[in-house]
Write a protein that binds this DNA or RNA. Structure first.
Length: 484
RNA sequence: GGCGGCAUAGCCAAGUGGUAAGGCACGGGUCUGCAAAACCUGCACCCCCAGUUCAAAUCUGGGUGCCGCCUCCA
């Protein structure tokens, strides 16, 4: 059984074979740090996080690099609008990025290269392209000569003749394209405008174009060919196509063997994006500032919401979907955080996991990271565990051995970790007097029930419910309670 | 106009030849003074048409609808 991944380049699922056995190099396009990240970014990050975790689970040593684009028009515009500096904007939003992403339990990449740290490497690449005749300079700008590269379009399946210039309707009229020899060419180096940050270069003061950064950083950090290149589906063209053009023309080797792309988050079927204005930031969701659902959303709920869809498919974001994920997470969390102290289990935590569950999970995930199918395994484990737990707790019965129980729980925990789903230990340190107070109320209520003073009994139930304590009357006459 | 993707229950979503995972929601039941919890239980002929096959949600052809990209994008 081997891992199979869908490769955008070939448009097929292929067996995954890394260049160096046991090792995987992986690069995913990160964000341009000009604003807070929204749910679309979260989806991408969670997706690649799970890919990485799964590869590690499968025993691969993964070297994972994700870039920050820290020089860009949007950053400059923001700085200008705020009367601030590019550096200040970059610092702020990188900090914000880490804050958001770590809350979502996304593991840090091994490296976070920034464009501005790679200016010499970028110069080198552009010069090499120039020498080979794939780039030309005009008045301080340098362009890539797309028609020189025979393979252009192989990733996105395009033919130059069939592309409609400006079909996206976003060509900026203020930025005349006339300097280019051909409308399909793209910029490698932009000459400096007055008052903007600029670097010395063989072509004069300027700054890098968008696509060249990834070619340069991949080469600098991971080498000429990497195993996996990931990114949002909206980057296939032109960004990734251009990366290929820049890199492969120089090395004669594939830039990446596997190109993976995640589907978009949509809102009412429409892509979530900054420009459409239909975005919701991660921060707003976590902090309870999403207008449609003004309560803090557990980061795990967001993970679950994302992982319930296959990563390549569109994922529609709506209040109802989040609410459903919240309930789903409650189910998983209940089992992940079972209070074993109530059970007096005899067996220690086993090292072996439940083979059948692991097998089903792995089969699902080996099939192009089918997290939705993988989650089914988690839910089935979680529900079975909860059932057994309740059986033991409330009815003093058991249907499986302590070892089986522990094994299931351990399996659930470990598999959930592959998805980054972890139940944080609830800090339910109930103050001592609290417990005493509750116990005394319980006694009063017990008394009332025996005397059939049900009004009083219900009053006490409601009083406790109001402070978040739920009472459960058991068949044996005892009453349990727990916080909600 | 070009390229790519998607269409499965009220909603989300797996399943790529043998007769539909899972989640959410909902209904019924047991238990209970009531309630909650718990437990048991019910809930789809897979967009349309034609074809291939003993057998198709699953393959082929043709429709229809929706989405992404065609130089801002995760």
């Amino acid at each position: 059984m081997s891992l199979t991944v869908y490769n955008t380049l070939t448009r097929h699922k292929e067996p995954f074979t890394p260049i160096s056995p046991g090792n995987v190099t992986m690069y995913c396009c990160g964000v341009t740090v000009h604003d807070d990240c929204h749910l679309g970014h979260a989806r991408s990050c969670i997706g690649w996080d799970v890919v990485r975790r799964y590869l590690q689970w499968r025993g691969y040593q993964v070297r994972y690099v994700q870039n920050f684009t820290d020089i860009d028009d949007k950053i400059l515009n923001r700085a200008k609008a705020e009367g601030s500096s590019m550096q200040a904007i970059v610092d702020r939003y990188i900090a914000a990025y880490f804050n958001d992403i770590r809350q979502l339990n996304i593991l840090d990449a091994d490296e976070y290269p920034r464009v501005t740290e790679h200016i010499p490497a970028i110069h080198q690449l552009i010069q090499a392209l120039e020498e080979k005749g794939y780039a030309y300079a005009i008045n301080g700008d340098v362009y890539y000569s797309v028609r020189q590269f025979a393979d252009y379009g192989k990733l996105s399946g395009r033919q130059l003749e069939q592309m409609q210039a400006g079909a996206g309707g976003r060509v900026d009229p203020a930025e005349p394209e006339r300097k280019k020899q051909d409308p399909v060419d793209f910029v490698l180096w932009k000459s400096a405008k007055l008052g903007e940050p600029a670097w010395e270069s063989p072509w004069g003061q300027g700054r890098p174009g968008w696509h060249i950064e990834c070619s340069a950083m991949i080469r600098a950090r991971l080498g000429e060919t990497i195993d996996i290149h990931g990114g949002g589906g909206d980057l296939v063209f032109p960004h990734h196509e251009n990366e290929i053009a820049q890199s492969e023309v120089l090395t004669g080797k594939p830039l990446a063997n596997y190109w993976l792309h995640n589907g978009m988050v949509t809102v009412n079927g429409e892509k979530m994006s900054k420009s459409l204005g239909n975005f919701t930031t991660i921060r707003a969701l976590l902090d309870g500032n999403w207008s449609e659902y003004p309560q803090p959303i557990d980061p795990m709920v967001i993970r679950l919401f994302v992982l319930q869809a296959h990563y390549r498919k569109p994922l529609d974001f709506a209040k109802a979907a989040i609410a459903a994920a919240e309930n789903g997470w409650q189910t998983l969390k209940d089992s992940l955080a079972l209070d074993l102290q109530q059970l007096n289990l005899s067996s220690p935590i086993p090292s072996e996991l439940d083979a059948e569950s692991v097998n089903r999970f792995q089969t699902a995930m080996d099939d192009d990271f089918n997290t939705a199918a993988g989650l089914a395994v988690l839910f089935e484990l979680a529900k079975a565990l909860k059932r057994e737990f309740n059986l033991r707790c409330y009815q003093a019965e058991k249907e499986c051995s302590d070892l089986q129980f522990q094994t299931s729980l351990q399996t659930l925990t470990r598999l959930a970790q592959v998805f980054g789903l972890e139940a944080s230990r609830e800090t339910v340190s109930a103050p001592e007097f609290d417990a005493i107070w509750i116990e005394s109320l319980l006694q009063q209520r017990q008394q009332a029930r025996q005397e059939k003073c049900y009004a009083e009994s219900d009053r006490i139930r409601n009083e406790l419910q109001a402070v978040g304590i739920t009472l459960i009357d058991q068949p044996n006459g005892q009453t349990r309670w727990h916080r909600h």
